[in-house]
Computed example of a mutant assay.
Amino acid sequence: MAITLTTPTVDELGHVVRTLRDWQDDASPMQLHPGDLGWYSRFGVDALAGAVRTWRRSGRLLAIGLLDGANVLRATVALEAWRDEELAHQVVSDVSDPERGVLPTGKASVEAPNGTRVQDLLSDVGWSTDESWTPLRRDLTKPVEPSGLRVEVIGLGEESEFTAVHRSAWGSAQFTDERWRAMAAGLLGPDVRCLIGRDAAGVAVAGVTVWSAGPGKPGLLEPMGVHAQHRGQGYGRAVCLAAAAELQRSASSSALVCTPSSLGPAIATYASAGFQRLPERRDRSRDA
């Protein structure tokens, strides 16, 4: 049967998210996580639906991608289709042809899990290696040590301090209270917890968003940041420990995070909180 490429409707997003949850597995390399879609949902449900691409055979979802910006596709495939030759050729054909409505002309990148035939085939047809990413994982089957930080889960009406920490940490004005509310009220709202860490004086110094994929599945930190005025005091490590503890309370099997390999201090922060480095992943890029 032919493999079809589609952009889901808003009503179809629930099935896509449930399928993506099912694909999460601690034995697999780092891959697209429901939390990635959840973080994108700060732009609204219509924008999220418009950014998702799916590949199906006989109605069955085999691959899911998220356009993280106009020229970056973050994709994964069903575990049973990891080395599916027909699927890989179709996905690579679709991402390589701008007329298919996945990636535009010019420079573009695809992120796919290590070991998938999609990633291998992109290299075979001339897509070069691009940015290197370092995934890290913390096992949650054992107790998580106390963070030493006063941590609160942010609810509706309490988002202003959290978004302010994020904007300072990331040097970006884009994460507004309105976007936080859109994310919290969105399709993946039940899966998300936003944590804010306070120093001894009660000042908000760090924040992290964690996403559950369900009991027994790996959870995700996306994103984490320390306020620019409070760096270098161990708050990053502390809020990462708090994030791991929160995911453990939700029955997640592990806590995952992925950061550019060029960000040595970020990797060191996660490692200090008990996250173990996994094999690096390289994006595949097309220059023209």
Rank of each mutant, 00 (worst) to 15 (best):
S41L: 02
V52Y: 03
A108Q: 03
E12C: 01
N114Q: 12
P98G: 02
W39L: 09
G44M: 10
V52K: 05
R100E: 13
D46G: 14
P34T: 01
L79R: 15
V118P: 03
L87M: 01
R117K: 14
R56I: 05
R100M: 11
A75I: 15
V52P: 00
V118Y: 02
G59D: 09
L73C: 01
L79M: 13
A78R: 11
R117T: 10
Q90Y: 12
Q31P: 08
L103S: 04
W82E: 09
E85F: 10
G38W: 11
W23A: 00
A112R: 03
A112G: 05
G69I: 02
Q119R: 12
R117M: 07
A63D: 08
A51S: 13
L73I: 00
E12W: 08
H15L: 13
L20N: 03
R56P: 14
Q31H: 09
A63F: 04
V72M: 14
P98L: 02
L103N: 08
A49N: 09
S58N: 15
D94F: 08
A47W: 02
R100L: 08
L66G: 00
R53A: 01
L122F: 06
V91A: 00
L62G: 00
L62A: 00
L13N: 10
P29Q: 10
D84H: 00
R117L: 07
L73D: 03
R57E: 12
Y40H: 15
G35Y: 06
R53H: 08
Q24G: 05
G14H: 12
R83D: 09
A51R: 08
G126T: 04
M30P: 07
R42I: 03
A51Q: 07
G50H: 10
R57Q: 14
A70Q: 11
R100K: 14
Q24H: 07
V91G: 00
A78H: 09
W39Q: 11
D124N: 15
G126S: 11
W23R: 04
A51I: 10
D97V: 04
V95G: 01
L37M: 09
D11T: 10
L121H: 15
T54F: 14
A70I: 15
G59L: 06
L48N: 07
V91F: 00
P29R: 12
D84Q: 03
D36T: 07
E85R: 09
L87F: 06
V17I: 06
L73F: 02
F43C: 14
V92I: 06
R42Y: 13
A81M: 02
P104H: 00
S41N: 13
G38R: 01
W127Y: 07
F43V: 13
T54A: 11
R18F: 09
A51D: 04
D36L: 03
P98D: 00
D97H: 10
W55E: 01
R21I: 07
V102H: 04
A88G: 01
R42M: 13
R53Q: 08
G65K: 05
